[in-house]
Simulated scan of single mutants.
Amino acid sequence: MLTVALPKGRLQRPALERFARAGITPEEDLASTRRLIVPAGASARFVILKDSDVPLYVERGTADLGVCGLDQVLESAADLLAPVDFGFGNCRLCLAAPRGSKVAEEAAQDGLAAARPSLGVELGRSLRVATKYPRLSARWFGQRGVPVDLVHLSGSVELAAVCGLTDAIVDLVETGRTLEENGLVIAAELLAVSARLVVNRAAYRLKVEELLPLLEALG
């Protein structure tokens, strides 16, 4: 039996549609059931998780494969295979800041390029940035030599910049409407994100006869 880690939220419906085309359909309506493990016939079952937990469950072998955003794959640094880019759930991981701020002005001057190392000097301290993605953010700023004080949040990241807790944020942007309505502008794009199929390395070897036809159908 294959165990599939399926995320809650906006990726769930298109992911279910792709699995249905491959012949794997949950026996219950996931929109109405409160069960966290849902059978999908005799050969598979779905485990319902937060998007950010999918890489861990798959890496540790609790699930054989799963669906999550590329942002979660990279932020988790999990040792996984990611053989399929589903092409849905498209969005961007962006640096955003209040309109008229030094960060926004830098972006306007550099054509939405990376923040410059001198920015921290101009502020008189390290750039403060709120994010749900400390690993990806630290790497991006580090590659550009920008001193940064990262504030790890799990709730509304935009609020941190709006209220002055931080100078900027790094967060996912789909349409940009939330940023616009809260007076924030995109300063730089860190990563283009889409939904990926992730596979446990051991399962790929040990369950190859079950997995390969499914991967071909999903791809």
Results as ranks from 00 to 15, higher is better:
residue 209 E to H: 13
residue 210 E to A: 15
residue 99 R to D: 15
residue 167 D to T: 04
residue 111 G to N: 02
residue 24 I to W: 05
residue 188 A to H: 06
residue 65 L to R: 05
residue 147 P to G: 14
residue 45 R to H: 01
residue 113 A to I: 00
residue 142 G to C: 12
residue 195 A to C: 01
residue 179 L to Q: 02
residue 143 Q to G: 14
residue 219 G to P: 07
residue 87 G to P: 00
residue 32 S to N: 10
residue 1 M to Q: 11
residue 142 G to Y: 07
residue 22 A to F: 02
residue 68 C to T: 15
residue 12 Q to S: 07
residue 161 A to V: 01
residue 87 G to H: 04
residue 177 R to W: 04
residue 80 L to E: 14
residue 2 L to K: 00
residue 214 L to W: 08
residue 146 V to Y: 08
residue 140 W to I: 07
residue 73 V to T: 07
residue 60 R to P: 02
residue 100 G to H: 11
residue 147 P to M: 14
residue 16 L to S: 03
residue 44 A to G: 11
residue 75 E to P: 12
residue 217 A to Q: 09
residue 19 F to W: 13
residue 143 Q to T: 01
residue 196 R to L: 12
residue 24 I to A: 05
residue 111 G to Q: 09
residue 3 T to Q: 09
residue 189 E to I: 02
residue 112 L to D: 11
residue 195 A to D: 02
residue 215 L to N: 15
residue 112 L to N: 11
residue 13 R to W: 08
residue 88 F to A: 07
residue 163 C to Y: 06
residue 121 V to S: 08
residue 47 V to Q: 13
residue 212 L to F: 04
residue 156 S to E: 15
residue 78 A to N: 09
residue 215 L to K: 10
residue 70 L to W: 00
residue 216 E to L: 15
residue 214 L to M: 12
residue 176 G to M: 02
residue 33 T to E: 06
residue 70 L to N: 00
residue 15 A to W: 00
residue 115 A to F: 07
residue 191 L to A: 03
residue 209 E to T: 13
residue 145 G to D: 12
residue 21 R to C: 08
residue 132 K to T: 05
residue 176 G to N: 04
residue 16 L to I: 00
residue 58 V to Q: 12
residue 89 G to H: 03
residue 60 R to Q: 11
residue 95 L to Y: 04
residue 33 T to F: 09
residue 200 N to M: 01
residue 91 C to V: 07
residue 128 R to W: 05
residue 159 L to N: 14
residue 61 G to Q: 04
residue 139 R to E: 15
residue 106 E to M: 12
residue 140 W to R: 11
residue 4 V to Y: 02
residue 100 G to D: 15
residue 1 M to A: 14
residue 92 R to N: 14
residue 5 A to Q: 00
residue 99 R to G: 11
residue 178 T to E: 14
residue 68 C to Q: 10
residue 198 V to C: 03
residue 215 L to W: 13
residue 163 C to R: 14
residue 191 L to M: 13
residue 26 P to A: 03
residue 125 R to P: 00
residue 196 R to E: 08
residue 171 D to E: 15
residue 89 G to E: 08
residue 175 T to L: 05
residue 94 C to F: 04
residue 142 G to Q: 11
residue 2 L to W: 00
residue 1 M to R: 08
residue 93 L to A: 07
residue 158 E to Y: 10
residue 124 G to A: 08
residue 105 E to W: 09
residue 31 A to I: 02
residue 75 E to R: 07
residue 69 G to R: 06
residue 140 W to G: 07
residue 51 D to V: 06
residue 18 R to Y: 01
residue 196 R to D: 05
residue 212 L to N: 10
residue 173 V to S: 11
residue 29 D to H: 03
residue 185 V to N: 05
residue 7 P to Y: 01
residue 174 E to Q: 06
residue 204 Y to A: 15
residue 110 D to V: 07
residue 73 V to P: 09
residue 90 N to H: 10
residue 121 V to C: 02
residue 35 R to E: 15
residue 155 G to S: 15
residue 48 I to C: 12
residue 76 S to D: 03
residue 88 F to I: 08
